[in-house]
Each structure stands twice: as structure tokens, then as C-alpha cells.
Amino acid sequence: MLKKCFFLALVSGLSAGVASIVYASVYSSSMGVDFSKIVKPSGLVGASEFGTLLAAAGYFLGSKFLKANTDAVFNILFLLLTFASCVGPFATNLPVTVSNPELFPGYVIPMHFFPFMLWVVMKPFFMKPDTASAD
């Protein structure tokens, strides 16, 4: 279980990182802004990996207590935490040399959702659907 959680976190984190890099590139070119010095591509992958590894630890610990309800509770909790994390970009102070800081939340907030989305998408490849909850 722990091994599956770890690999799910690794793959979904990496996928979320790649999705973030693609989104960052599209956003930057279409909006004419450059936040690459604030958020580096390696940072995007690192942050995504950190998020999913943290989620994996939470999922593993939660499964010990929640049993068949793990997925339902975990998904709600993961989504709520993702929403809560969106406050951060609004409060971030960028260097004054960076133009258009008002476009920064639109740049990073969608990225906050990628780890959750990729976790949900990738999970069936690593863990079989919970038969207990299906009954």
C-alpha cells in the first residue's frame, strides 16, 4: 500500500509538474508576462511532487483509520486544502521589478489544482477501485 501510494505520488506529481510547465508557457505567451524568474520550471515540478507526496502520506495514514471511506474523505480534504492554498498567490509580494503582479494569481492558481486532478486521474492505474465501497 505504501509503495503504491509512493509511486502514485511520484507519477501524479511529475505529471502535474509537466502540466504546470505547459500551462505556464501558454499563459506567459498569451498574456505577455514573464514570471519565470519567480517560479522556475524545476520549482513547479518540485512543488507538485511535494504536494502529491504529502497527499500520499495523508492517504496512507488515513486509510488506516477510514478504511472503505478513505477515498471519499481524502478527495474532499485534498480538494479543500487545494482551495485553501489559493490564498497564497493573492498574498504573495513579488519584487517591484516584476511587471503586472495582478496577473500572478491567474498564473499559479490553476497549477495548485493540477496535483489533485492528476492524483484522481492516475489513481486507478495504481490502486484498484475500492470494492468495499462499491458493494
Binding site: 498574498a91 513579488l94 494569481p105
Partner: peptide, 8 residues
């Protein structure tokens, strides 16, 4: 530019 869009 204060570095924060909301504050601007």
C-alpha cells in the same frame, strides 16, 4: 507597483 496586484 508594490509587487502585489491587489495592493496596487
Amino acid at each position: 507597483n508594490t509587487g502585489n496586484g491587489m495592493r496596487n
